[in-house]
Design a protein around this nucleic acid. Structure first.
Lengths: 226, 226
DNA sequence: CTGCTTGGATAGTGTCGCTATCGATCGATA
DNA sequence: TATCGATCGATAGCGACACTATCCAAGCAG
């Protein structure tokens, strides 16, 4: 397959494909001459993955490169590759650990991780800081997350991973298949869950709001005549 | 409070605060003279909200403006304001409904929403399209979401909203308090959940991977037997 | 031979979230 | 009163990022 066909089948413009090649998101095709290269189905597949992570996942190109580099490098063993993928998915918040609120939040996170038995999570995983950042922010907004709030969310996340993600990830498959599935689970199901939560919240909040005793009664009441 | 103090207490540089004022994210302070304006605690609060949505939520300024405009406009009733907030939180995927996969996905989404009894969700809610986009993308990556996958996620989202979000949102509070709580629940707990899911996945996938037949045997992969 | 495509390289574009600078105006202080 | 510095408002610039446009030499196909 030549670049024109790759572009046609993926819907990605040729200049953009060239850009991905330059950025090493997409491996080079097999050169058949100085001005020809042949691309295969794996390129098409990779291209679709890139677009999914960019458009749906909104991941920066640099993040995608970290993942694809680990996948394309045969030196990296599968275990390490999965770790790289996990860490690349953390948006890496700017480090500001010199703050008391921050350290408190980290302690809370570490305790939670330990209590849930997530003992394979490295202590320096950036994801911990990411969660801590969310907790600090909630505090500053006067809506601190209680331990129960956190536990509820954590148990739900744990259940979702065990009942869904783990079943979708083929650990015994070729390296690229496994890591792709992992990333897809994280990013696409993450987005899907986000959307579902918004839908549920829209439905519930509308229902609850309608059930309120009419506020003020001065004419602005909810849902009288609309 | 003058702008310098607002800056000091929030940690946001003065030029950035001016930028937010220009962009109407932050309401003007009370002008006391041509070159003086007085800011109150509500400004500090708003500023913290803006930073939370920008830094943690990664929301674009335009989205935040939609929300703050609805909050600051007294003409908007609370019901409408909550709706505005919900819809603003959808990243608004580019419209491409002229595709068969797309329509199939929308049908699947609509059926799901109906089956779960989320009957207050408007039929033209952008969130539906957002979810549909994720489904289309999963299909194209050869990992189509089954109806059971979707149901699992949806029920979990529903539970989380009913057991958590709804309890955190004070529907009878002043307009700004209510919408802030709603947005914070969506965005910050959304991020927190994301992080928790990654933590759970890291722990689980490491555990499962270790449990595989030793990969050392013959070169590159666990899983000799196939 | 001709015309089109390709690969490779370089430079430009549009968007976004700030950031820098300027001039006029005022308030507080010397 | 004179002066210094903070503030407002406006305009322009910056840096990152994801492309996009253009050019050129080298092929290959009719």
């Amino acid at each position: 397959m030549r670049i024109a066909q790759l572009s046609a089948e993926s819907g990605v413009p040729i200049p953009t494909i060239k850009f991905y090649l330059r950025e090493r998101l997409l491996p080079q095709g097999e050169q058949t001459s100085a001005t020809r290269a042949e691309y295969g189905p794996s390129h098409l597949r990779r291209l679709r993955l890139i677009r999914a992570l960019l458009e749906v996942g909104r991941l920066p190109v640099a993040t995608i490169r970290k993942i694809t580099e680990a996948v394309d490098d045969d030196e990296t063993d599968v275990h390490e590759m999965l770790g790289t993928a996990h860490y690349a998915l953390s948006p890496a918040p700017e480090p500001a650990p010199d703050d008391e609120d921050w350290r408190d939040a980290r302690v809370m996170v570490d305790r939670l991780v330990a209590d849930l038995g997530w003992d394979r999570v490295r202590h320096d995983a950036p994801t911990r800081d990411e969660l801590a950042q969310a907790l600090v922010t909630l505090r500053r907004l006067d809506m601190p997350a209680t331990r129960d709030d956190l536990l509820l969310h954590a148990r739900v996340a744990d259940a979702l991973v065990k009942e869904h993600d783990i079943k979708k990830i083929p650990f015994d498959a070729p390296r690229d298949t496994a890591v792709e599935a992992l990333v897809i689970c994280q990013v696409l199901y993450g987005k899907a869950f986000d959307a579902l939560r918004r839908l549920a919240q829209e439905s519930e909040s509308a229902r609850l709001f309608d059930a309120l005793p009419a506020p003020g009664d001065a004419g602005k009441g909810p849902s009288e005549a609309e």
